[in-house]
Design a protein around this nucleic acid. Sequence first.
DNA 1: TGATGATGTCAGTAAGTACTGACAGTCAGA
DNA 2: TCTGACTGTCAGTACTTACTGACATCATCA
Lengths: 195, 195
Amino acid sequence: MDNSNLGSSDRLLLAAINLISERGYNGVTTQEIATAAGLSEKTLFRHFGTKQKLLEAAFDRYHYAEEMKKLFKEKLVWDLETDLLTVCRTYHEIMNRNRKMIQISLKDEVQLPGFKERTQQHPLQLLEILTNYFIAMGEQGKMIRTNPEMQAFAFMMAHFGAFINDLDAGKNYPHIKLEPFMQESVRIFARALTP
Amino acid sequence: MDNSNLGSSDRLLLAAINLISERGYNGVTTQEIATAAGLSEKTLFRHFGTKQKLLEAAFDRYHYAEEMKKLFKEKLVWDLETDLLTVCRTYHEIMNRNRKMIQISLKDEVQLPGFKERTQQHPLQLLEILTNYFIAMGEQGKMIRTNPEMQAFAFMMAHFGAFINDLDAGKNYPHIKLEPFMQESVRIFARALTP
DNA sequence: TGATGATGTCAGTAAGTACTGACAGTCAGA
DNA sequence: TCTGACTGTCAGTACTTACTGACATCATCA
């Protein structure tokens, strides 16, 4: 990765995220991070003071939140199959942007207060939005009215599972691709939930 | 945990699995493992030689495989809803037994050849079995015949996601319990896949 | 030119940690 | 009672690693 156009802090942050997401916090040395950033270890400490603060800075800078609600409100067209596809496309998009942070949070040897909570904010938000959407669809007679939250949860879990499964560059099930999976899962849920 | 009835090796293995699954390989010292086992560090090295070999021994001893196929062949009754419930119950059972090993494998700082592969053997097996089951059900006219592998994959991913989500003692969605989730997911897939 | 700010080099400290050797204690079984 | 297997203690080695201080370099800009 050539980040020579970026400032030193940014290069260090990116290198830290890359390495830590692959090998874990304790599996990477400050020396390695600095070298990967094309800088000296001394510079790393001049910028961030400690290794822990480097990770905190990376965390503050590269997490994306709050965009979920907006994305949904603007895009839904109140057709179950269409909307489910939008939802899971958006979901995978956001999860992919946060991929490395989620990987770090999964490994999670570090004791960063609020680290896990913040990376897991998105799924929680999505569950709430999707549940409300299912309820509204039920009231419009476009969906069966049985167990909206659990159904939303099941839909989410299917895509969460697929995302986690794909974290290591999709090595588990190499013949299964994301796009057809999204389409089939939407078909299944649409058929099951349509009155 | 009181394992005073077990032999020294077993106590060390159990302590290692517990600690490493929580904090990662590099996050735990041999001293801590020995203390947690109620033994001295020296004894740990007398038994296993190196920290790495301790983990390998734990891995060899506490992974469960090969039982999936048997379990299924004996239990299926060729009714979609019943069988799906059996499948996902068995799945969660096996995943839970392997819980700590899967956690270690997720953190995965260690370079154990074949470690990930072996912990991920079960899902692969299950996908194959479930796909063949879907095909057979289709031939019997008890299921729609469209995309059996992807449908099996979607069902698996839903439960894989739910399992991973539950790994940290179910802290993410505390109000959602496993059993009702299993039932609802089975209902969804049964409704979607029945002709 | 000279000052400033960011960086590199290098030597070094302090702590942690995997791992060893020597020696002693305990306890079951012959 | 003797033996042998197992364990603990303790001191210590060798290596790694987060982090620091002193000093040099270099580009920019007034």
